[in-house]
């Protein structure tokens, strides 16, 4: 019908027909709305008196839930030990790791050779001469032993001390050569 109408009518007539169609639709919608609203008003007429009665009905709030007093769970004595272990483990995690863990990565600072040379000189100033192996007595670490050995070599090189072989040749004497120089150094 629409296609036929458009074919038969001119442009102006088509526009007029379209606007009339729109008006028709609007009036139809408006009539539907009025009919629906009329029905709603009928329902309101029945519901409104019932609302007057409904407004007189009071309700109460739910009763608050009362929590049971006291502890409701059950435990074994071993649970306390487990809890203590967990606490100790957690505390251990918080603390920094012990230095033993880094022993392979971070080495100890080597014993300074210069300090050991001073100690050797002080020892020789007291006695003048000392057995080589006695100089190593009291050394607490491998680094200190190495430092003692290097210190004796350095002192020999600087002509501060000299080594004198004993009969066996296993434990030579270390003799102080320049006492004044040794006193200046120490």
């Amino acid at each position: 019908m629409l296609i036929k109408t458009k074919m038969l009518l001119s442009a102006a007539e088509q526009e007029e027909a379209q606007s009339e169609l729109d008006l028709l639709r609007q009036s139809l919608v408006e009539r539907q709305r009025k009919e629906a609203m009329e029905q709603i008003r009928v329902a309101i007429g029945v519901l409104e008196p019932r609302n007057e009665i409904g407004r007189c009905l009071f309700t109460k709030d739910p009763e608050p839930l009362r929590r049971e007093k006291g502890y409701r769970y059950r435990h074994e004595p071993v649970d306390l030990l487990r809890a203590l272990d967990t606490i100790a483990e957690r505390n251990a995690r918080v603390l920094p790791p012990p230095t033993m863990n880094f022993k392979g990565i971070v080495g100890k600072e080597p014993y300074p050779v210069s300090r050991k040379a001073g100690e050797v000189l002080r020892q020789l100033l007291l006695r003048g001469i000392e057995r080589l192996k006695n100089l190593f007595k009291g050394n607490k670490s491998r680094s200190e032993i190495v430092a003692t050995f290097l210190a004796v070599l350095d002192l020999c090189k600087t002509n501060s001390v000299t080594l004198e072989d004993d009969i066996s040749g296993e434990n030579p004497n270390v003799r102080l050569l320049d006492q004044k120089k040794a006193e200046e150094v120490t």
């Binding site: 539907q32 629906a36 029905q39 709603i40 519901l47």
Partner: peptide
């Protein structure tokens, strides 16, 4: 209450 519902 029964009413006539309109379809839009």
């Amino acid at each position: 209450p029964p009413i006539e519902k309109i379809s839009f």
